[in-house]
Computed example of a mutant assay.
Amino acid sequence: MTAISEKQNAGNRTYIAQGEYAIGDGEEVVISTILGSCVATCLWDPVARIGGMNHFLLPEGPAMRSDVSSFGAHAMELLINSLVRHGARRERLRAKVFGGAEMYKGLTDAGTQNGMFVLSYLARENIPCDGQSLGGTLARRVEFMPALGKARQKLVPDASLVVEIVPVTEQTSDLELF
């Protein structure tokens, strides 16, 4: 087995987008994604040498939405359950987490909420977090080698333009429209 994915992969390299996840067990397998305020969790079992990555948008969402894999708790369970179905042991899982940037200053704190959610989820589930890169204002490109438990990130400087949302104040003028 090399890459197992919920989506079509390109050989040993799989790109995941928001709401997706992929797992793999070959040393040549690489799973990648690009994150802003979203969070990616890389989980692996060092004994079974299998791991995977998810990419979620928000900690929670409406229960009736069809894209529930875009939300934290569901995305985490999908990834964990898939790893266990393919030979990982839940009690041996290790994690590394990335993302949660503040991409739009003053508009939302979704990135912070995502980071807090994933860390509290891992603590609650007794999954050790061996590494994290959360917060900041830069987007990240993350690559994960699931069989080895190795991850690397590259900050994306072109995304460093944090947009500051300034509230519009009502202005008065001598112009009357009718």
Rank of each mutant, 00 (worst) to 15 (best):
S69V: 03
P46A: 12
K105D: 06
I127A: 08
R124F: 09
Y121S: 03
V84P: 07
N126D: 15
G87H: 09
N54S: 14
L58Y: 12
E102L: 12
I127P: 03
L43H: 12
M53E: 07
S69L: 01
A88I: 01
R92G: 00
L57G: 02
S120A: 14
A110M: 10
V118H: 02
L119N: 01
M64C: 00
R65Q: 14
M64S: 11
V118S: 03
A123N: 08
L57S: 12
V118L: 05
N114L: 05
M76K: 04
V84S: 06
P62Q: 12
I127T: 08
D45W: 01
F71H: 13
G52T: 14
A110K: 03
V84N: 05
I127M: 09
M116P: 03
F98T: 01
L119G: 03
S82A: 15
L43V: 11
A95V: 08
N54K: 11
A95M: 10
H55E: 02
G61F: 10
G72W: 02
V118E: 00
G111Q: 01
G106T: 07
R65S: 12
E102M: 12
Y121K: 11
S69T: 10
L107A: 15
A88F: 05
K105S: 08
L58M: 13
M116G: 03
S120K: 15
A123V: 04
M53G: 04
S120C: 01
M116I: 11
H74Q: 05
T112I: 11
H86D: 07
D109T: 12
M64D: 11
K105H: 12
M64Q: 13
R49P: 01
R49N: 09
I80L: 11
P46Q: 10
M64G: 01
F71C: 07
A110C: 08
N126M: 12
E102F: 00
P62K: 13
R124C: 08
R65A: 14
P46N: 10
G106A: 08
G115N: 07
H55Y: 05
A101M: 09
L43M: 14
